[in-house]
Design a protein around this nucleic acid. Structure first.
Length: 271
DNA sequence: CAAAGGTCCTGCTCGC
DNA sequence: TGCGAGCAGGACCTTT
């Protein structure tokens, strides 16, 4: 999916168009997502003003006067700001109509996305309650990651992709961050030294920040709120580069599988 | 046919 | 023996 940089790009992309606007309508065309879109939201939402657009991990938070929408883009979801008269296409699941004559439209072919409504603090929601720190916040530091990795037998790659350890790092950025930190993805998490933990934390922060700066990574479906792709794909060092020479040492990049997901690394740069 | 950016849930194993 | 945490695998989908 959309990993953290793509979700953050979407957040920034919709922020200006929706903040302060009043919701004038709600249309559900296909309620089938990871969980069915809650019924009765039209009553709930119509007439409310949107106060803020936030993000927690890969979840977008659309705060309204009397509650908040919690939206996940899943593997193939995208959220766009369009004129409400724009014709719909396949896999358009819902429209959040605004008093500006525009609409927030969610499209998701694979239906792994989700939408929840809460009148409580989203941080207390079941989906968000127990997840790890934000990778770009100071709380995510070498000491935290080092401690969290003690006695953990999983591969480092799976460890950093675990949302209970740190949020927002998915398959692309896990491989890219481990390359930048010069660490083998298949190593046991427990083998991290304090120094390695520091390198990995810095690598994750740098990679995510750089990706956000260029609007994320577009491989297939992903587009930002204005329909434009992200440009980080051109900056990838290892992801989807199996068989191609490493951009640093020219050794061929390898692809292996960890927990049914592809992992890419340079056998020379990453030890 | 395989694989594609996510993550929740289940059931098993391991170690205290 | 019992318990909880950690871990692997399955499940959910459509498209290329």
């Amino acid at each position: 999916m959309p990993e953290l940089p793509e979700v953050e790009t979407t957040r920034r992309g919709i922020e200006r168009s929706v903040t302060g606007r009043t919701i004038s309508g709600w249309i559900v065309r296909d309620h089938r997502l990871r969980w069915p879109i809650p019924a009765g939201l039209e009553q709930e939402l119509t007439g409310q003003r949107i106060t803020r657009v936030g993000r927690r991990g890969k979840y977008l938070l659309i705060y309204c006067e009397r509650g908040a929408l919690i939206l996940h883009l899943g593997m193939s979801g995208s959220l766009r700001v369009l004129k409400s008269s724009t014709p719909t296409t396949k896999h358009d699941h819902f429209d959040l109509l605004l008093d500006s004559g525009r609409t927030l439209r969610f499209n998701d072919p694979r239906r792994f996305g989700s939408l929840h409504w809460t009148t409580a603090d989203p941080a207390d929601h079941k989906l968000l309650r127990d997840i790890g720190p934000e990778p770009l916040e100071p709380a995510f530091d070498a000491q935290y990651l080092y401690r969290a990795s003690r006695r953990r037998k999983v591969a480092l790659k799976n460890f950093v992709m675990n949302a209970h350890v740190v949020v927002g790092v998915g398959n692309i950025y896990a491989s890219e961050s481990l390359f930048r930190a010069q660490l083998r993805p298949g190593r046991r998490a427990s083998s991290l030294s304090r120094r390695d933990a520091g390198k990995l934390v810095r690598a994750i922060k740098t990679v995510l920040r750089q990706a956000i700066r260029v609007g994320g990574t577009t491989l297939r479906d992903y587009v930002g709120a204005d329909g434009s792709p992200g440009y980080f794909r051109q900056k990838l060092f290892v992801y989807e580069r199996a068989g191609s020479p490493c951009r640093v040492c020219h050794t061929n990049i390898r692809r292996v599988t960890h927990g049914q997901r592809s992992t890419f690394y340079c056998p020379k740069c990453q030890q």
